[in-house]
Amino acid sequence: MLFGKRSTRDAFEKQAERVFPSLFGTALRLTRSREEAEDLAQEAIVRAYEAFERFDGTNFKAWMLRILTNLYINKYRQRQRGPQIGSLDEEGMIEPTGPEEDVPDRAIFDHLVGTEVEEALAKVPTDFKVAVLLSDVEGMSYQEIADITGVPIGTVRSRIARGRAILRRNLTEFAKKEGYLKQGAEE
């Protein structure tokens, strides 16, 4: 019995250590605070360890990210002040991006550095940001993102499209401000 528990711990620790950088990175991008990210990631690890016997053994990283994002959405977002754009009914939500015909200059993305992207990402509503991060940074499929966030695959598709549109707008504004892109260049 004791050996069984030890091997469970070893198995968990081995897998958790492998995915921890992704977990912590996602936590950091969501919270934008190293201290809060540590709390969030640690809490996710503890929850996962306690529920490890119920893990189906298929996709550990997706399972861990699901715990983390659920924790973040349930716990951390409650602390945020002000209107929650991401929590509004998505079908009725006003599209906060420019018109569809606006075609951004792909060159603006070549000038970007990490902090600029992080800042632009921070302005994206949570649900959209989670979907974009999981897709673009963690390389998750739409189905995996749907499993992680607990929403239908169609919603994931919509969130990624909208999230990227908001991000593109933020980055474009940033590029204009920094002079990478001339005013009105993308119209």
């Binding site: 958790a16 250590e17 912590f24 990175g25 991008r29 990631a41 640690q42």
Partner: peptide, 25 residues
Amino acid sequence: AIRAMKTALKDNAEPVRCEDEWKAC
């Protein structure tokens, strides 16, 4: 543009050092 932004996002997501945080876990 979507491809370029996806690539930019991936490339700019710098790997985060988290050895101490893992030890705390």
